[in-house]
């Protein structure tokens, strides 16, 4: 006579399998689209470029200045820097400052536009310091009707045509 346990074994195996299938289905419902999305899309970045290491003390870098540039914001470190950083980056990235060039009048127009349409407040006596900083350090350069290609910036490479 067989042990009852032996009779139970195939039932238990079936039950276990069922539970596994259920778990898989559940898992797929929960994270399936993410997993699919991961396989579906091209690898978004070269991970070799990212060194796995302990988090660096980003906070210590907040005030770092290199070659006259405030590293964190990219702004030129000079008289008026603090007030410009404090005012401009309250709303938008410092990159919106550093990628632009204008005369004092041009910068003033941008400030007026921001005051009229974007909710910028009255800058009071700070305005003069801000304008002086911007006009001095982010002034337009004469580039003519069309500049040369920036040959210095080109990364030359051998084109593989095989």
């Amino acid at each position: 006579m067989r042990e009852p346990f032996d009779n139970l074994r195939p039932i238990l195996v079936t039950l276990n399998l069922s539970v596994l299938v259920l778990i898989f289905c559940f898992g797929y419902l929960l994270i399936g689209d993410q997993v699919v999305a991961m396989f579906d899309q091209p690898k978004p970045m070269d991970m070799d470029a990212y060194r796995a290491s302990a988090a660096t003390a980003a906070a210590e870098d907040v005030d770092r200045i290199e070659n006259g540039i405030h590293v964190q914001s990219g702004l030129i470190y000079a008289e008026g820097f603090d007030i410009v950083r404090g005012t401009c980056t309250a709303c938008h990235s410092a990159k919106l400052v550093t990628q632009n060039r204008a005369t004092r009048e041009g910068w003033e127009q941008m400030i007026r536009w921001m005051q009229e349409t974007q909710g910028l407040w009255d800058l009071g006596k700070n305005e003069d310091a801000i304008l002086s900083y911007l006009a001095q350090h982010y002034a337009p350069e004469e580039v003519g009707r069309r500049a040369n290609l920036d040959v210095e910036a080109i990364e030359w490479y051998v084109l593989d045509l095989e």
Partner: peptide, 15 residues
Amino acid sequence: GMIPAALAGSDQPFA
């Protein structure tokens, strides 16, 4: 507010 460890210690631009 923490940088993912894999990205920490890198000055590389991010995607």
